[in-house]
Design a protein around this nucleic acid. Structure first.
Lengths: 165, 165
DNA sequence: CATGAGCAGGAAATAAAATTGCGCGACACG
DNA sequence: CGTGTCGCGCAATTTTATTTCCTGCTCATG
């Protein structure tokens, strides 16, 4: 007897049953698994499992399957956190900054934030020398910047993309 | 034991030719591509391409193939950046904090940093209410914390795990 | 109660892909 | 020049993905 009591909860939230969650958890951990193995793990036939995975992709829950590379070995082992204050808080000013921020080499995160900064970024680079270069060549030329405060990462305690499920 | 010539066995320096880089770039963008398609893109036969991918995995350049899920649809659409100052700067104090930080629900990044904070974290949660709960139930109980300063994310400009190649 | 549409699943067949084994040629080195 | 190594491509084989078709279940409605 399997419990398939699916009660409608919210219109905006996608309904995920137990099997969907197991699939997502598994693929978030390791998506190189074959569909037959995944199907076995979630107690489904391969076609049924494949249909679910395709549905999850189609619905946008699975944004993509990507390779997770080692930043250290690709000259991006150093993390710098950067707080940014803009000169003016105008829409045009923000738009210009955001446009440019996306092009900063190694920019992994960039968020508009509350508090003493307008933006907070997380940038990956090779070492302090290459960060200095980045700072001089790219960060200082970001449009409308009044102040940049950098926090150099000394040790990576956590760095993941895994969403809790 | 064959130790072929000059081999910088230090994990940081790996030789990557043009084809390796193209493979990595492609897989970082979309790893759901089949090996035959990937092989065609990099002008290699499928077996040769597969051998390279396996080598890149074995050498640790490819840490894994993972599904990238949509945080918004999994109740993790809100980003909070958190600067943390500890009471004491002792090894035991740091170790205890780091141990606990890894267990914070939705903690995506946590780094030891220079500057006015000891740690900087990036946490994902559903909304300000759920962040309040997280704050009250988990963050305030992190060991040895003197001060916590939170910057709420208002807009996600960049959020990626793609390393520049 | 029937009944029939609409899902979601399984089995088997088919298409495609991954994987293995093998031989070839380029290259460096003795 | 041999010779060993490395990486490639081809072809065969195994495994996997994908399609097709059919069944059972749920639920709304006559």
């Amino acid at each position: 007897m399997r419990d398939t009591t699916t009660h409608p909860t919210s219109a905006t939230a996608v309904e995920l049953d137990r099997i969907d969650k197991r699939i997502l958890r598994r693929l978030q951990q390791d998506a190189s698994i074959s569909n037959v193995a995944l199907a076995a793990e979630v107690n489904l036939s391969p076609p049924a499992c494949l249909r679910r995975v395709e549905r999850l992709k189609r619905e946008g829950l699975i944004r993509g399957i990507v390779a997770h590379l080692d930043p250290e070995r690709l000259n991006a082992g150093m993390v710098v956190l950067i707080g940014v204050v803009l000169d003016r808080s105008t829409p045009a000013s923000f738009a210009a900054f955001e446009e440019a921020a996306q092009r900063v080499t190694g920019c992994m995160e960039c968020h508009v934030v509350t508090g003493e900064f307008d933006y907070f970024m997380l940038v990956r680079t090779r070492d302090s020398q290459s960060f200095n270069k980045l700072h001089a060549e790219q960060l200082l030329y970001l449009p409308g910047v009044r102040q940049i405060r950098s926090f150099m990462g000394l040790k990576e305690v956590v760095s993941t993309h895994r969403v809790p499920l």
